[in-house]
Simulated assay, not measured.
Amino acid sequence: MSVIIDIAGLPAESIVFQTSPLAELNVALHALSEPGHHPGLRGWVTATSTALPRDLADRLREADFLWRNTFSDLFIPFAGVRGGDGRAGATLAEELDLLDRLDDEQFVSAALEFAFLASYNKGGPSPLDDADARARALELAAARGPQQWQFAGRLLTDPASVRAWVRRLAEDCEEAFFADVWQRVHGTLSADVRHKAELLRRKGLGEALTAVSPALVLEDGGRRIRVDKLAYCRATAVDPAVGAGLTFVPSHFSWPHLMVLGRPGWRPVVHYPLGSPELPAPTSVDVLQLRLEALAHPVRMQLCRSTARAPHTTGELANILSLSAPEVSRHLAVLKQAGLITTRRRGRYVLYQLDVTVVARLSSDFLEGVLR
């Protein structure tokens, strides 16, 4: 499974790297509501949550489905403004002005994204006009609690008041904590934007994508970008209805999340975490699946146990497990193909040993894979 971004015919000047304060506010709010996703931010989350005014904290809980379960596209409004230039605002106020330019159908559909994830990249009827879509949105909002249900109801009956409410919420967040956050991280994000733009200009899109994340690959002779994620979505960066463009936005807060906006009628956006030098490169989803499947067999689990303690030959393992040597060889081949077993030769014998470093990282690989 992957996210595909079609870029065939996209002019080079339409691929841009930019900072976005509103997008960064989105992931900061997500970190506050889901600190378990961001263990490196626990200190900041604790300090910020403790200092939040009570009224603001209550309002954040009321609308937290905009950033807790999904990353609402409302926080990247520059991608959806019709007739716009596809550029992010330099300040939070400028991006909130772009948010005001979305029409009610765009605003409501993006806000209720959690209710239509299965059809996210296909589009569908608006909950403002379609009774079934409206009922589904309210039902799923109710499952998240009475506050979310009431918020979704207001959104469907009076979008204008909720639009004003959301803008005020963002402005109050800026006053309470985000202005200080943005001042602290903006320099680093801007430096990354300049670096990636220069890399794009000098060495091309392939090199720039590799620098963004190992999960991004240029394919089909440069006609499309594949993003390694546990999801399927297909977006186009050359939709004439909205205008050609592809934007990359760095984030201080988003690791391990790598988000791709692929909503029909919006320009695609890749919102990527800035890499941390102490973190190893993420494992691809395909490799992760291969390793988990390799371990999903009792014989291979026993082989891992034996080879974790010391290297063994096929014959030794067959004797330990009371199996035939050919059967052990077949299971070892599966583990080796998955990269879980290393081999070394001792005379005419081959010794097999579990790669404990790879196995130790499986839990974090799994977590990164499902959160990416």
Rank of each mutant, 00 (worst) to 15 (best):
K122E: 12
E13G: 08
I4D: 05
N121G: 09
K203H: 14
L41A: 10
G221R: 05
E368W: 12
L98P: 01
V45W: 05
G221P: 07
R223C: 11
W44V: 01
S322R: 15
E327C: 04
R194D: 08
Y272L: 09
L92R: 03
N121C: 12
D6Y: 01
E327Q: 13
A160Q: 13
I7L: 06
E24W: 07
V285P: 00
T357N: 15
E34S: 15
T91G: 02
R144Y: 04
L189K: 04
L362T: 03
P21M: 10
E278Y: 13
R345P: 00
T91W: 08
L288W: 13
G40E: 15
A176D: 03
A237S: 07
L279Y: 13
V350C: 08
R223V: 00
S363H: 11
R87K: 14
G275R: 15
L22Q: 11
V358N: 02
A115F: 03
L155N: 06
H195E: 14
S363G: 08
F17Q: 02
F366G: 04
G80T: 01
L29M: 13
T50A: 15
P273A: 14
R361G: 14
G315Q: 12
W67T: 02
F151S: 02
A325V: 14
A333K: 13
A231V: 10
I320D: 09
V287W: 03
L41V: 07
T343E: 15
V27E: 08
A8D: 15
A191K: 13
L156Y: 07
L317E: 03
T307F: 07
T247L: 10
L96G: 06
W149S: 12
L29E: 04
F177D: 01
D73W: 03
F71M: 11
D228F: 01
V359S: 07
Q289N: 11
R59G: 00
F107Q: 00
A152N: 08
A179K: 09
R82A: 13
M259T: 14
A88H: 06
R201V: 08
A333D: 15
S49I: 00
P264H: 12
D58F: 08
R144I: 00
G153W: 00
P127Q: 05
P214A: 12
